[in-house]
Write a protein that binds this DNA or RNA. Structure first.
Lengths: 133, 133
DNA sequence: CAGGATCCGCAGTGATACTG
DNA sequence: CAGTATCACTGCGGATCCTG
């Protein structure tokens, strides 16, 4: 909170394309759906710290169902963001890790997280103020 | 409002979620839900180019329903990311603009878009390869 | 241990109609 | 023009059972 005027770091560096028209939106949706996915980001963020096994992920993201974890990993693997390494031992062992490209996206997400931390109080205050009226 | 805004998904989210060794998860959801929202990002990106009227947004994000546009704007306003300026003229006129903080988030989103553009081909190729097996 | 298959509830969304 | 209200549908996501 209390940073109305201080954090006016308006970086208009980007290319403000006519997002709504036709094609720019679609490509955008692709990546946004990925980031917007309830679990994908959490999993990617966890994998950002290093490879993990299936069960480790399931415990780490405690609250995720097997179904969703599998679905999420499959989707990330399909997009080439996560790599799946199977070790056919007596009890099967599967390790997941970010691919180089996956790491770059993970980095972007990390920045988003930083943003969230920096402006969390502000958002909370805004909501409280809004809800009060 | 008979229905909660787009940002009220936190309700079905567990109150107790240790989510592994990462606490940022909770705050993370907040911002991620914002970014993951189907329309929020598009609207914010458009507003990044400057203030727009309600009808302008509706035309620009062609495909969005009045309901969703209103819900999205309300939600963004509630979070202090968008400012609503009403001009009570004969035909009502309402302008929406990003707040300073909203601009910083918009900038983050812009980077995400850049990422998407840079790695779109890679992702597409990965998918094609994956689907082929 | 890793994950496929199935059932199902409900939040999120769209389409439509109405209003100040 | 800028919304609000209502309804009906869809598909995400959770819970549960089963397999290699």
């Amino acid at each position: 909170m209390a940073e109305e005027g201080t954090s006016t770091r308006a970086r208009h560096t980007d290319v403000r394309e006519p997002v709504g028209e036709d094609h720019p939106t679609c490509q955008l949706r692709d990546i946004l759906d990925r980031v917007g996915d309830k679990w994908s980001v959490l999993v990617m963020h966890l994998l950002g710290a290093g490879p993990r096994r299936y069960s480790e992920l399931q415990r780490a993201v405690e609250g995720i169902s097997q179904r969703m974890l599998t679905l999420t990993l499959r989707s990330l693997e399909r997009d080439g963001l996560v790599e799946r390494a199977v070790t056919p031992t007596s009890p099967p062992r599967v390790d997941y890790a970010l691919t180089p490209v996956g790491q770059t996206l993970s980095a972007q997400v990390a920045e988003l997280i930083t943003w969230a931390e920096q402006h969390r109080a502000y958002v909370a205050a805004s909501r409280a103020r809004y809800d009060a009226s």
